[in-house]
Design a protein around this nucleic acid. Structure first.
Lengths: 325, 325
DNA sequence: GTACTTTACGTAAACGTTTACAATACCCTA
DNA sequence: TAGGGTATTGTAAACGTTTACGTAAAGTAC
């Protein structure tokens, strides 16, 4: 049988209260001598705290729940690293709940699990809940924060890159390089996609460009490959892609049909993960600071007031050609 | 205040025992009428079960803990998908504990967290614990299983590919294609690496090849790039790489110095993730079935006796050249 | 010595469930 | 009607902690 504080108390001749105080380090309430004795006996017995009992009496667990989508893009390790790091600085554990791929049922289950565990905060990364789940979260009294998704609703916490800024910066850069026939590819039809479209169109407008070209997709490599087909009859000179994976798909499919990047087609991808280095040529990207997004989201959900938008930067690699005017 | 079964009991005029029975679906112990009433009231009150209380009295939580390394390789989504799917079939929740990158302290913390939560099983993916942690696990009485790592110790559960088979198959294939100067690159110095070396050397020996060439690394893209430098003075015609990322690194660094793949150098990578499609040329790989590794590991840890080794297969893509003899 | 303060510890209630056991209600049969 | 069974519900203990409150012991000051 697993030893409890009762066993330790019996063995050391003190009450369970004292054992508890020592074990949970309520310093100043016990003598060094008893501390030493209890710690020794606890070790001897191989004692482990029962988290369930602790959480039951404390009514809140020192744990942040991260609900994660199985996105075909791979930004998540950066985000998680950031979350993990900051959470452990704040004395919080982290549990990750997996919500499949836009699977409403799994998502709901994950949210309920988090609520039933009365975690101290919920982080939803790249997740768009339906209204029912959103009210569920709101009514729970547990703070939650969207990560890498900006809902643009009052009083809803969120940490992400500024999607409008991402695409408008990409447009600015491409225009600077002489491009005017610029497409946006692989975007989703939800909040993120909508915001990126807004930034894209604002960017074009600012430069007096009137023709836009938008293709939807799902952030995956395969999606990128398919999208290239749609671009074949079009005469764009540059494409901004919704993810590195989309860019990689377009790039490879293009090369297969003899379109050279960047000579015949320029590509600016959004994300800036290691994928950008793996392709040939390397992908110029609007790079997001996923680590910082993760760490700031922990601050948000723990009630520290920090920035909602984390800055992005353009990293020039090899997939954009400077056009002569 | 969050409602409890007590509140429901009070409102519906039954005892908490009955409420509990309805809510935990002890079918046959309550009437349909009370069930309906209790369910309705529970919904009205926005009741949520308190997991801590449940776990406390049940002494075991219906949760599998997955302890995860931040490997520079990206096989984990496949593994996790498999784990998640199978776990939910078996009515188990999944929590993921992140152990950083070969960070003994974080790993220890993760293991302790899992034990303190008295989970029903612990899955260690791509993790090699030190002796202290291993005894900790053994003494805990909680079943644990290594995933994607084979320790080759009696009575230790494990699900992985057969590392010896991976490299020997790779050697077989390369020899078949006419190669005899075959290197192994990016391997680690621990169990996985050792096993792959064994398979590699056995493979060479089986074909009467006496010269071997082994370079160590850490599975990352950068590590692959560095490794290429070491191969420059050597005259190997083919390299088996420890991961797709290593292969990508070697490939790109090679192309930068004018070595063409596969014309001048053939590459067989281990893993077979999407990375193999992203590089130019595509990487021929020994592909692991990560999804199945994940799902089988759940079976293992839940006490079902399943295979330890999950088969791999060679997928021929574009990075191996057939040599004339 | 008393009176007071501080330190260290003990007692017992509380957290929200589950479940063994006991009790009641109901139905059926003879 | 009694007797027996079954279906449904209630009572109360248990799970392993934390912590408010009380108390004993030890120290301090006069």
């Amino acid at each position: 049988m697993k030893p409890t504080i009762k066993d330790i108390a019996a063995r050391s001749g003190v009450s369970i209260a004292t054992v508890s105080r020592v074990l949970s380090q309520k310093t100043g309430t016990y003598s060094e001598k008893t501390q030493a004795k209890i710690l020794r006996i606890a070790k001897e017995l191989g004692y482990r705290k029962n988290t369930a009992a602790v959480e039951l009496v404390k009514k809140r667990s020192a744990v942040i729940a991260v609900i994660l989508n199985a996105t075909p893009t791979n930004f998540s390790t950066g985000v998680i690293d950031g979350i993990q790091k900051r959470a452990s600085e704040l004395g919080q554990g982290v549990i990750i709940l997996y919500a499949g791929n836009r699977d409403a049922q799994m998502l709901h289950k994950a949210i309920v699990t988090a609520l039933e565990r009365t975690v101290s905060g919920i982080l939803l990364t790249a997740i768009e809940p339906d209204d029912a789940d959103l009210t569920l979260l709101k009514d729970s009294g547990i703070p939650f924060c969207f990560v890498s998704l900006y809902l643009n609703q009052p009083k809803i916490l969120s940490v992400s890159s500024n999607n409008e800024s991402i695409t408008s910066q990409a447009v600015d850069y491409l225009v600077e390089q002489g491009h005017t026939a610029i497409a946006l590819a692989g975007i989703d039809g939800y909040h993120t996609g909508t915001q990126r479209i807004a930034g894209y169109e604002a960017g074009l407008k600012a430069h007096g460009i009137t023709t836009s070209c938008i293709k939807y997709g799902d952030y995956s490599y395969e999606s990128g490959r398919k999208l290239l087909q749609e671009f074949l009859p079009l005469k764009v000179t540059a494409i901004i892609t919704a993810s590195d994976m989309i860019a990689a798909g377009i790039l490879n499919a293009a090369q297969e049909v003899g379109i050279r990047v960047p000579e015949d087609l320029s590509l600016v991808s959004i994300d800036g993960t290691i994928i950008c280095n793996i392709t040939t040529p390397d992908l110029t990207s609007v790079t997001q600071d996923f680590y910082r997004i993760g760490s700031r989201s922990v601050d948000q959900v723990m009630g520290h007031d920090v920035e909602t938008f984390v800055p992005v930067k353009i990293e020039k690699r090899g997939s954009v050609k400077q056009l002569e005017r």
